[in-house]
Every structure is written in C-alpha cells, then in structure tokens.
Write a protein that binds this DNA or RNA. Structure first.
Length: 760
DNA sequence: CCCGCTTACGTTTTT
DNA sequence: CGTAAGCGGG
C-alpha cells in the first residue's frame, strides 16, 4: 500500500465505532443497516463509499439514493474530503447524460436519478425526451379538465381526491387498467376512469408528474431488458438511504437494479417512517431480510447527537408502538437539561413563549441557525412568523407557499416550459392571457372546439388561428401576437442561455410594470422575478439549450430542505415536522402538542395512522442535541372557532424524571401530570391535582443523588429498590422505560438508564 | 373581459 | 379566521 492509501484508510476507519466499521467493510452482498436517530449513519455511508472507491471500484459504479438533494451534495463533499479529491465537479450529477464519467459516485433522490435515466433512454418507450415535470398545481389543473371532460361533477369527485387516489395507485405501481380491475365501487370506477384519461392528457402534453418519473423508469426497465442490463452493469454497488420511506414503485426500481449483482445496501430506521400517507411502505425495510436471506444486518445504536434526557424521552414515546425491531439507543452525553413541557393559555401565547425561549438560548450563545420550531401543519406557521417579526428575529420558513409556487414565478417558468415544449397545454393555458391579451374563456372555448374537431393540439390551433372561423379579426391578431412571442424565443433558444432569454422575455412582456401596480405586494412580486433571474445565472456557463433544461429540471425537483443550504445568514428555522427528518439542531421546540392537532384529528382514530403520528413525534424529538421543549395550548383558535383541547397523548408517555413542566399559571401546571389523554378528554375539564407536585419535587432530588445505576438490567418481574419509594416490582418494560409497582402502593414510570434503581 | 365583492370551505403531512 | 374560487355588475 502506498502512503497515500494508508493515509486514506486511516481517514476512512480511524473515527468509526465497531458497528459503523462493519457497515463500511461489508461491501459485497446485501446489507441492512438499522440506524437509529443520530447514530452517524451519514458518516457510515460516506465512509463506506469512500472505502469502495479506495478499494478500486470506479466512482461511477456506485449509485446512492438519498432523501434530498441537499443530502447528496453534502455527502459528495464529505467523500471528496476523505479521498483528497480536489477538483470541482459538484455539478456533474445533474447535467451529464453519460453516467460513466466523473470522480464521484452518482447520488441523488429517486426522482432526480430517474429523470436522468429517462432523459437518456425514454425514447426507447416511444416517448420524447424533452418531457416537462408537472407539480401538484399543474396536476390539479389538468385533473379539473379531465373531470370536466368525463362529466364527473366536482361534488362526486374532487380533483384533489382523485389525485390522491391516483397517487396511491402510482406508488403501488398500478396502471390505469389494473386500477380499473381493482375498482369495486362506483366511485372507484370513476377514479380509474379519471386516472386513464389523466395519463392520456399528460402524455399528450409530453408531461410527467412526480410519480411518473419513477413508474416510467420501472416500465422502461421492464420493457427494455437491454437498458436494464446496461444500468445493472453500470451501477454494481447500490445504496438507499431512508429506506423505511420508500414506496413500492421505488422498491421495484431498486430491486430490479440489484437483481444482477445483489450489492444492495439499505439504511433506515423503522421508527422514523413518516411518509405512509404518500405510499411509503414500512414493510420494505422490515422485510428486507426476507427479500435477501443472506443479508448482513448491522445496528447502529450509539447516538452521537442528543443528551440522555432527550433520548430517554423520545424512547419512551416511541416505545408505545407495537412491532418494532429491538433497539437500544445510548449516548455518552449523560448530562443535559430536562425536557421542558410547556403549557400555555392559547396559540398566541405559545408563539410568544416559543420566541422567548429561542432568545433565551440565543443569549446563552447558541446561534439562531441552531434552533428550530416544528409544527404539525403549515397553517400553524403564521403566528410564529408574526412573533418573529415583532421580536426582530430573523427567520426562515420552509414549505408553505413555496418560492417556486408563487404565481409570478410560475408564470415565468410556464413561459419557459412553453418555449421549450409548446405542447405543454397546462403551461400554455396558464400564460396565454398573461399579461392580459383579452383571450378569455370564450375565445379559448372556441379554440378548443376547433382543435377537438380536427384533432389538433392547442398549439397547432394557435398557429392555424386564421382558419378558426368564429373568431373576430381583433382576437386573431392578439393570438397571433402571442404565438409570435413564443416562436421568437424558440429560435433564440439556440443562442441565449436561460438567464438572457428570460431577461429579454420579461422586458418584452413589460412584466415590471404590470407586476408592480404600485403596491407593496407588487414590489415583492417583482423582487421574486428578479430572484429567479439570479438563480438562472448559475447556468450561464452551459450550452444555451442545456442551460434552460438544466435550470427547469433543478427547479422542478428541489425540495424545501434543499434550500436550507442557501443563504448563510443566521436565522431561526420554522418548518413542519415532516421536513425536519435528517436534520439536527441544538434547540428544538415542538409546538401544538394537542389531541386533534398532534396527533392530527384525521389520524387519531386509525391504529396505523396513529402509530405514524407517534413516529413523527419521535423524529421531531430526536432532532434535538441539547434543548427540547414541547408546547401545548389550553385553547386554540381553529377553523374560526375557539377550541380547548387536551394535551397530546404523546406527552403522557414522558417519564417524569426527565421532564420539567411549566405553565402560564402554576395551578394547572400539574393538573394533567397523571391520567391519560383519553381520560382527560372524557373528563372534559382539567382538574387541579396539586398533591402530585411534591412527588415531582422529591423525584428531582433523586436525580442528583443518582450515580451508579446504569448497570441495572431489570426485566418484568424483577424486584427493585428505589431510595425514595422503597421496594417494588417491575410490571412493564419498553426499552429503557419501566413501570414499577411499589410495595407501598404507588405506581411510577422510570428510565432505567437514569433512575436510581437497584435490582435486588 | 375585468374587477371587486361575496361566499364557501378548509388544514395533515411532500418529492 | 383566512384564503381562494365564483359570481355578477360594469
């Protein structure tokens, strides 16, 4: 071995624990890595890939599927450092259609990888490689048209509902025909019908939605064995991160690739599966060893992120879920602040208190970028945003009204889509009257009738507008103006990069004038357009047409979390619990911990959905390194009504030993210290429960008194002794958490790793 | 065809 | 409550 190689080996293995090392070393055959929260799985994965390369595997033979583009970028960076790769090729992943180049592995989300495959090979399915990608907004517009065509009333089947069903079908890799065969009810027949028509329309527009990207790739593999075989030979080493959140279509994709060499390494944590609603199938990870009987299973159980109180609390919450693989997370950070459970009067107070807590921690020296407020639904964000503004705290919100979802931004993008592909009817309809050209529903109706009668596309009809009989001359002229603009820029496509093209277009459309309208809002919209132009400049160095397609591609596939890397400024982050997966912060505040909101009322009465809600809570809690605060409001203004809800049932599971309860008013602070959420719901009103306060205080003293209790391994039935409560019997055990019936009559819950218990 | 007002409806969660 | 679609008068 050369000295460089030795040095690389040291870098790769030097800092790993035994389990991580095992994960890195087992490079051949199927490997299942069960990686608990904060267990250094990204580290294991990057080191594993670096090791593969160091062992002589060509980088392009390695495929790694990540959950976000941000994760892919970060991992590439780390691999570069491990291998001392100095050259800049961070952009390689997106643009090249030739996979067998580059000094870094192919990394990206399922969606971005599939797009690259399709751009390269989809012509083998008889489709055009310049397809556009429809987002949910576009989908909804198209579905509305489809339902209209099929004479399905909105009351019978709402576009969103139809799309939700279709999404289900697609994630299960069912085509319209199969959906039809499955449909038993009248309603599902209609859905299947809509599905079929929807796909036809997509195809006519040369468009795909997100799910199609995966499905069409699977279909391509299926129908063109030579293509599949080529990719199997290219990517001999496969990795999938966050495997617990893959759906069936994604499962098929990766399974087909793995068929030949079987070098598939999947990483995940069943306790963090939170995307069931969009078809993620937790069985993919739970049954991996059935699919691959020879799989090696590695568990990463050491947590490098959080303090013991945080782990204990999170563990206690997740322990209530059934059918979990055995897992015992541990940390060397045995000391840490208590989890704060904070009761407030109402949602306004909640926002104020949360911001105050953030400022508190900030004063102690933790930057805002290290802090986050997590909520269950986007709708909750507004009050926190307002509280930030009042307090003068810089913040950034992920999700909600997305930048690329803004009307003015989508308008510009729609122009670009149409210039690239005039058959994109959804985009065409979006912009044909923007800015106003007096082409309204009446005119469009006539155009569409003309198109239908001659089976022309809308675009061809526009080109042929002089022959549309029942339009007056003025209208024809205005349509002509529009077509000319599109044709003009279509020609410029070969000459101008996207930023130049778009700038000229925006000038020609006089967007600044009609966007601004002299209002504050208008000013902001214009700024958004300029911001978009700035983003485009990143693509200036590419070939003109490639610069446009690359730009549109990246825009279509950016996730909210990808944007976290943008902007270096120090700001507090606000986002939904779903978006926080894979991230970590010094200080985490989870708000709205109330029955009906979290767990959400739509998920409260279904066993499996409720389990998923619990996992969402687990994910949120385990993002915290040092401080964790859970908040709930006694009253909340929801849907125009003031509702008083019970604290979330998840709070019931927190062991008293690691919790400090705070409240707007002390009397009610302890009111809910005992009794289940369900009981409190039934009882309606909260009941003062002062006598338990002293028990809590007593208990806290026990904490400091503890030192040598970690070795205890009590199981159900074990007799134990506690310095304050005396002797008792373990009556239940869930991981680190035990319930103890004391001989004196009291029943208490403890965390084994913390409580001063002695097995006797 | 456009604008402004009224009404209906909604809130899970996302690539 | 807040927003977005929908309607009717200009």
């Amino acid at each position: 071995m050369t000295s460089v190689q030795t040095e690389q080996q040291d870098l790769i293995f030097g800092s790993l624990n035994d389990q991580q090392r095992a994960a890195v070393e087992h490079i051949n055959g199927p490997v299942l890595i069960l990686a608990g929260a904060g267990s250094g799985k990204t580290r294991a994965l990057t080191h594993r890939i670096a090791f593969l390369i160091q062992q002589g595997v060509a980088p392009w033979q390695i495929l790694s599927v990540t959950f976000t583009n941000k994760a892919a970028t970060e991992m590439k960076e780390r691999i570069k450092n491990l291998l001392h790769l100095v050259e800049e090729d961070s952009d390689f992943g997106f643009r090249s259609t030739d996979f067998k180049t580059g000094r870094l592995p192919v990394m990206g989300t399922f969606h971005s990888i599939c797009v690259r495959i399709l751009r390269r090979d989809i012509e083998k399915l008889g489709r055009d490689r310049n397809f556009v990608i429809y987002d949910s907004d576009d989908q909804e517009k198209l579905m509305k048209q489809v339902l209209k065509e099929l004479h399905i009333e909105e009351a019978e089947l709402k576009p969103r509902a139809a799309l939700a069903y279709i999404g289900r079908f697609k994630s299960e890799a069912l085509n319209p025909k199969e959906a039809q065969e499955q449909a038993t009810s009248d309603r599902m027949q209609k859905v299947a019908q809509a599905y079929a028509r929807f796909q036809t329309r997509l195809r006519e527009a040369n468009a795909m939605d997100f799910d199609d990207l995966i499905l069409e790739t699977v279909r391509l593999f299926h129908e063109c064995p030579d293509v599949l075989s080529r990719y199997q030979e290219t990517w001999k080493y496969l990795h999938v991160d966050e495997y617990q959140d893959t759906n069936h279509a994604q499962y098929l994709f990766i399974t087909m690739l793995a068929q030949k060499y079987g070098n598939l390494c999947v990483i995940g944590d069943p306790d963090q599966s939170i995307y069931g609603f969009r078809g993620a199938d937790i069985r993919n990870i739970l049954e991996f060893e059935k699919d691959y009987p020879k799989a090696i299973r590695i568990k990463l159980e050491r947590n490098y992120r959080s303090t013991q109180p945080i782990l204990t609390a999170a563990d206690a919450v997740i322990a209530a879920n059934p059918n979990r693989p055995e897992k015992r997370m541990w940390t060397e950070r045995t000391e840490g602040p208590q989890i704060i459970v904070n009761e407030v009067r109402d949602e306004r107070r909640e926002a104020e208190e949360a911001i105050r807590a953030v400022q508190d921690i900030q004063r102690q020296g933790t930057a805002l970028r290290e802090q986050v407020i997590l909520y269950r639904t986007h709708a909750q964000s507004r009050l926190f945003e307002e509280a930030c503004m009042r307090a003068g705290i810089p913040y950034r919100i992920l999700g909600g009204v997305k930048f690329y979802g803004r009307k003015e931004v989508k308008d510009v993008l729609a122009y670009l889509y149409v210039i690239l592909n005039p058959n994109d009817t959804v985009s065409m309809l979006r912009i044909i009257n923007i800015p106003s050209r007096k082409i309204g529903d009446t005119t469009l109706g006539k155009l569409q009738a003309h198109a239908a009668a001659r089976s022309l596309s809308l675009w061809d009809t526009l080109l042929d507008v002089q022959n549309v009989t029942d339009l007056d001359g003025g209208t024809k002229a205005r349509i002509d103006t529009f077509t000319r603009i599109i044709l003009k820029y279509k020609e410029l496509l070969a000459r101008d990069v996207v930023s130049v093209l778009a700038r000229d277009l925006i000038d020609e459309l006089k967007m600044e004038d009609w966007l601004k309208e002299g209002t504050q809002e208008g000013e902001e919209r214009w700024l958004n357009v300029q911001e978009l132009l700035t983003v485009m400049r990143k693509y200036d160095s590419l070939e003109p047409q490639v610069s446009l397609t690359s730009f549109l591609e990246e825009v279509a596939l950016v996730s909210e979390v990808d944007k976290l890397t943008e902007g270096r400024s120090d700001a507090l982050t606000l986002m939904t619990l779903h978006l926080c997966k894979g991230l970590e912060f010094e200080h985490v505040i989870i708000v709205g911990c109330e029955e009906g909101l979290f767990p959400h009322s739509n998920s409260m009465f279904d066993k499996e959905q409720l389990e998923e809600e619990r996992r969402i809570m687990y994910v949120g809690m385990t993002r915290a390194r040092t401080w964790l605060r859970l908040m709930f409001a006694q009253n909340r203004f929801l849907w125009g009504e003031n509702k008083s809800g019970a604290p979330s049932r998840f709070l019931d599971d927190l062991p008293d030993a690691v919790v400090e309860r705070r409240s707007d008013d002390m009397l009610s602070a302890f009111a809910w210290a005992t009794g289940s959420a369900e009981q409190r719901m039934r009882g309606g009103k909260l009941e003062p429960f002062r006598q338990h306060a002293d028990v809590d205080i007593e208990f806290k003293q026990d904490m400091s008194f503890d030192d040598a209790s970690q070795e205890n391994d009590a199981d159900v039935g074990s007799r134990i002794e506690h310095p304050t409560f005396g002797r008792g019997t373990v009556i239940a055990r869930r991981g680190d958490i035990v319930d103890i019936q004391f001989d004196g009559g009291k029943k208490k819950t403890f965390a084994l790793s913390i409580a001063p218990l002695k097995v006797i």
